[in-house]
Design a protein around this nucleic acid. Sequence first.
DNA 1: GGAATGGCACTTTTT
DNA 2: GTGCCATTCC
Length: 736
Amino acid sequence: MDSLIPTGQVPDYLNRLNPEQRDAIETTDGPLLVLAGAGTGKTRVLTTRFAHILLSGRARPNQILAVTFTNKAAREMRERVSALLGESAEGLWLGTFHALCARMLRRHAEYVELTSSFTILDTDDQLRLLKQLLEPYHIDPKRWPPQAIMGVIQRWKDRGLMPDAITAAEDTDFANGRCTEIYADYQQRLKQINACDFGDLMLHMTEILRKHPDVLAQYHRFFRYILVDEYQDTNTIQYLWLRLLAHRGTQRANICCVGDDDQSIYSWRGAEVENILRFERDFPGAKVVRLERNYRSTRQILGAASGLIAHNEERLGKTLHPGREDAEGEKVRVISVQDSDDEARMIGTEIERLRADGHPMSEIAILVRAGFQTRAFEERLITLGLPYRVVGGLRFYERAEIRDAIAYMRVVSQPSDDLAFERIINVPRRGVGTTGLQKMHMHARERQIPLTAAVLEMLGAGDIKGRAKEQLAALMQSIATTREMLGREGHVVAIDHLLEESGYIDMWKADKSPDAPGRLENLKELVRSLADYENLGGFLEHVALVMDAEDRSGADSMSIMTLHGAKGLEFDTVFLPGWEEGVFPSQRTLDEGGLKGLEEERRLAYVGITRARKLAIISHAANRLIYGSWQSAIPSRFVEELPAEHVETRGDTANSRRTFLGRPAVFGSTPFPLVASKRVHDVTPTPARSGMNVGVRVFHQKFGYGTITSVEGNRLEVAFEKAGPKRVIDTFVEQV
DNA sequence: GGAATGGCACTTTTT
DNA sequence: GTGCCATTCC
């Protein structure tokens, strides 16, 4: 393992870095935390560090463990590492937490009573399994939705807690304190069907490393260096897993974690910001490198974002400086509009203008807080004929036909996969209903065999009658034939045969609905993609772990996505609509998460602004159509927190935060506690505008003409001729 | 066993 | 306003 770098020479890839980045890369040994602000070259540091460790002869490719959160990040890192090394980066221990754990767990599955061919369940399967098992509990699904119970279990798994570790105090809120029992049952069922959910991949593997020192020692010998991306997003179990692997007896832990506490936006799914805040205590002697030179955004954007995030208390502290001298840029625009339609219109117009000025559409994004907000913009962009795509909608592997087809494959590959079998047993219709299925379940339980075996036995004994008899026999036959074909003719041919023979393809061919042809097309694509894998097992592993199919719409279109979805991306121009109290920050987060929730929302706002390279346009509307009814809204507190010197305000000045503060909250039941203590008191109630009296005829931009029926300060109730009775703010109507 | 109707609830999302 | 569920009816 000699160094490939000539002595006394600084390799080219290091010369292209700034001093902090270089420090982060050349500090190869010992624990290192790289606090990388938005746009400071985080990925570059990670990938260069990876290459540097190899090229300087410190480790061989398979002695580095590199962990990411998303497949996308893993893919990107793999590509960039192989570009730096000038060779393909195959066979590396580089992947997502879950993919790496799955790979390890397949080797040691027997320690947790699984076989190495265990199935990885998706969210759908998990929920179905839980629902089945919930039946005897007689828990009212309205009061305790299975999803919520699943959530409780998942959070426990995120924290590394097995059923026996759950204390009574921990389990009181949900389902009358029976969640522990349910959790234990659920784990039992998973074992029976030889399956893991995503949480189990981490949980089981950590358990094995903890209980089997020989296994742990083996990985310690193996992994000399550990690299972790997005460390602020790790949950407790991921942290425990990393710590086990990193602490190699008396040797110093060569672990390098890269992250940004200001971009921690996933606490609601178990991420613990504390992990990054605690790093120096967890890994004594740790060095911390701050990357604060931002090469992405203008000085104005950085100023606005920094000013906003400074309102958070719990931070490691870090300030972004512009990395380029020339990057003054335009101030962040804050635009107030009357209502959500105006907002969509305004953004549409701005985008048309940008397009006319020759800006590429792919460099424009609209970033929203929640999925439901995308529709208004889609409609507007369709009207204007502007190309767009909604990122993060239904993904390929989430479509019903794809899941069905995969379920067929799973049954072939794993006869004990009851969940998959259940999904397909009556798709297409084979005359099996709830009662029939129940009988099969009973039989399977009595004989302690999988569902497929139970069906075979019942068919043999003549226990299945009517239409179902022949149809099920045919299904079992196609499955058996497919298994034979796998070895002989390869998995592509075999699966193609299965989908035809089982009647699944015919089902869609017979379907008259307009989306049926598209579904058939998707199925063809799926079968085609099988060829990319060596065998069926490899393919199934891929779909279980890599649920993101790559988006290959190459058209020059703009993006609409959630703020969460935009993390890690950048655009020249970013629109940030819906900055209103209740929407953003989300009322629910405030209700549930209090100050911590608010800080996370603020980080989300920070993530949003820092996505912009050249221009960020924030907007808020006074009236918003939510679930079919109009609600008035006050501008987000984040608007006010933006430092004035980096902001340019446009639009209706009456529609400022000040105008609204005397009024009660419109979202949820809780008033805004933080606002109340700080700011509400110094605002006098807005007096009514003169001339706004009952009986006066007025015009409203959105609702048209109407007559005032009541006046309360600046709030009017108006009977509109077309839109009916509405409550409006007086500044939004004109006397006619 | 399967379609039709009514009620409710409605962030964020990866693996 | 919409979509998902559960119940009901054929």
